[in-house]
């Protein structure tokens, strides 16, 4: 009981630091997921509909990015750009690395979903005179979206977890904040547990959001 009071007291002292860390984690994740998804849709389209050269370029991009550990991407975007004169701050470099990583996954997910749609649908759309934009917007995208959602939720949750790696380059996100608090009061187990719980809450929120969109886009049966 005494221990619990001690812990709660320390949480109260650290409430602002924790909230700030949570805010940074949420904003990094949101920015990375949004930018990564937009970029990823472009990559996916390039992978499926690009000409031979474009396909080759996007294939190389996804394979290299997906095959690289996120930590390496984070360090690369923080250090490599500064050697060519573009000095990114830790937050910007971190968001860039996560967005790029996210885009390679989303691109690949979209490619799979688009290629799973029978070719006959594209042909039918052409036959009734739809442009490519109309075909994609009205025929392919709605179907692909249903395919994508579950794996997209998975990728988004991965991004939230990968944001912890930004602590290495000094972004004061939730994990680094937690470590700062622990270095002051030595309550490591309790505060790591709390951080884990907060990460779970964020990912649970993403999962619920995904479920909601799934319901909204489901084909009425």
């Amino acid at each position: 009981m005494n221990d619990l009071m001690l812990f709660l007291n320390e949480v109260w002292i650290a409430r602002l630091a924790l909230l700030r860390g949570l805010g940074v984690t949420v904003s990094i994740s949101l920015l990375a997921i949004l930018a990564g998804s937009l970029l990823g849709v472009g990559v996916g389209l390039g992978l499926v509909y690009g000409n031979r050269l474009l396909r080759l370029v996007f294939r190389g991009y996804t394979d290299i990015i997906r095959g690289t550990p996120v930590l390496v991407l984070v360090l690369a975007s923080y250090y490599i750009f500064s050697t060519v004169g573009l000095d990114l701050g830790p937050f910007q470099a971190g968001v860039l690395a996560l967005a790029v990583f996210c885009s390679s996954h989303v691109g690949e997910i979209l490619r799979g979903a688009l290629q799973a749609i029978p070719i006959g649908q594209t042909e039918a759309a052409k036959a009734i005179g739809l442009t490519f934009g109309q075909t994609f917007g009205s025929v392919l995208w709605p179907q692909a979206l249903r395919q994508i959602l579950p794996t997209w939720v998975n990728t988004a949750a991965e991004m939230v977890k990968a944001s912890t790696l930004l602590s290495v380059i000094g972004v004061a996100e939730l994990l680094l904040r937690t470590q700062e608090i622990i270095s002051r009061n030595f309550l490591s187990l309790q505060f790591y547990f709390l951080a884990g719980f907060l990460y779970f809450l964020i990912n649970y929120g993403i999962e619920r959001l995904g479920k909601y969109v799934e319901r909204k886009t489901a084909v009425p049966s």
């Binding site: 002292i13 602002l16 630091a17 680094l176 470590q179 700062e180 608090i181 622990i182 270095s183 002051r184």
Partner: peptide, 14 residues
């Protein structure tokens, strides 16, 4: 750094 007392760390006032 910010995680090693008494070298470099955040106090209760952050």
């Amino acid at each position: 750094g910010s995680t090693n007392a008494p070298w470099h760390f955040k106090g209760a006032d952050d």
